[in-house]
Amino acid sequence: DNTTGTQGKKAAIPSHLYKLVNDLVEVEKRDSALLELSKKREDFPGLAPILWNSFGTIAALLQEIVSIYPLLSPARLTSELSNRCCNALALLQCVASHPDTRSAFLNAHIPLYLYPFLNTVYTYRQYEYLRLTSLGVIGALVKMDDSDVITFLLQTQIIPLCLRIMDNGSELSKTVATFIIQKILLDDQGLAYICHTFERFSTVSDVLRKMVLGLVEQPSVRLLKHICRCYLRLSENKHAREALQTCIPNELRDNTFASELQDDSEKLTRKWLQQLL
């Protein structure tokens, strides 16, 4: 075993990790294996193909996901079960972000099993955590800049789910949901889809506008950054650009957010905002 003591990107898979993956198929050992593996996943980029290719592992992770469904409404989800499910989601996120497993993951329609979590509205912490972790998996998918991912998401109605979270989620959830919309917009078919009818455009632009107004009370630079990027990308569509003349909130035109954006690290956001206006 030449991996003892080696950490980081290039680490080979040590044998105890195989043992943990094997434990996932055993109901009695699954809970602790989920916890251990989700802690270690970032140290071993090679974990994703093992999770996907080993017998029964994905089936076991899916069982974890669907077993939570009956507890979603009325609210019966405990923090313990939410954590356990989030560990399973973290492993699926691995599979979603790895170039060798991403298409198989999409082709098996696995992201759709996360949508019921995104559809919940309870604000309890365990629900928020489940939504945020599920958004994280979708976020990891769109980060790959793969147009197959965007095609899949457009066909499966992720946009309304994201918009609702942008409308009434926590700051962190709003940020990830806005990031997902941003990534969809940055794809040409995504921009075309959202600007295809005025109704679609205005639904998105209304939510963006409402978020800007919310930021006046509760500032968040990272959220502001994603919102500006969304507006800027929308302005690349001819019809959307015309409509935006009247849709962009004044708070972005005057100096409402000047103090948040004065930091040098926000140079890019300042540039986007200038470009937009």
Partner: peptide
């Protein structure tokens, strides 16, 4: 069905 097909054919 899509999910089951994919996982069964793999496993």
């Amino acid at each position: 069905c899509v999910t089951t097909r994919s996982l069964i054919m793999k496993d």
